[in-house]
Simulated assay, not measured.
Amino acid sequence: MRARLIPVNPAVGAELHHPHRPHPVIWTAGRAARRQQSGERPATAVWTEQQLAAFLTDLAQDSLYAAWWLAALRGLRRGELAGLRWTDVDLQSSELTVAQQRVHADVQVVVGPWKGSASCRVVALERETVRVLIRHRERQEELSATAGDRRQDSGYVFTTADGAPPRPDHLTGRFRRLVAASGLPPIRLHDLRHGAATLALAAHTYLKVVQAMLGHASIVLTADTYVSALPEVAHEAARETARLVLNAASALGRQLGS
Rank of each mutant, 00 (worst) to 15 (best):
M1F: 10
R2I: 13
A3E: 15
A3C: 07
R4L: 14
L5H: 07
I6Q: 09
P7N: 10
V8K: 13
A11R: 13
A14F: 11
H17F: 10
P19G: 01
P19W: 04
P22L: 10
P24S: 01
V25T: 14
W27F: 07
W27Q: 08
W27A: 08
G30E: 14
G30V: 12
A33Q: 15
S38W: 10
P42D: 07
T48V: 02
Q51E: 13
L52E: 03
L52C: 03
A53W: 05
A54C: 06
A54E: 09
L59M: 14
L59V: 04
Q61D: 15
L64R: 11
W68C: 03
L70Q: 01
A72K: 02
L76Q: 00
R77S: 06
G83W: 03
W86V: 11
W86C: 13
D88C: 03
D88H: 06
V89M: 08
L91M: 10
S93G: 14
E95T: 12
L96M: 15
A99H: 11
A99K: 05
Q100D: 00
Q101I: 00
D106C: 04
Q108Y: 05
V109I: 14
V109D: 00
P113Q: 15
P113N: 13
G116I: 01
S117N: 11
A118K: 11
C120K: 14
V122M: 06
V123E: 00
L125N: 08
E126T: 01
E128Y: 07
V132R: 05
R135T: 08
R139G: 08
R139H: 09
Q140E: 12
E142R: 15
S144F: 08
G148M: 05
G148P: 05
R151Y: 05
Q152H: 04
Y156V: 04
Y156T: 03
F158M: 06
T159M: 02
A161H: 04
D162L: 09
A164M: 09
A164F: 04
P165F: 05
R167F: 06
D169S: 11
H170E: 01
T172Y: 10
R174D: 02
L178C: 08
L178V: 01
S182K: 07
S182Y: 06
L184D: 06
G195P: 04
A196N: 02
A203M: 12
T205Y: 11
T205S: 14
T205G: 00
Y206S: 15
L207T: 14
L207E: 09
K208D: 10
K208Q: 13
V209D: 14
Q211W: 04
Q211T: 09
G215A: 06
H216W: 05
A217T: 08
A217S: 15
S218E: 13
S218K: 14
P231H: 02
P231K: 10
E232P: 00
A234H: 10
E236N: 08
E236L: 09
A238Q: 11
T241C: 07
A242L: 14
V245Q: 06
A248S: 12
A249I: 05
A251D: 15
L252Q: 13
G253T: 10
Q255W: 10
G257Y: 03
S258T: 06
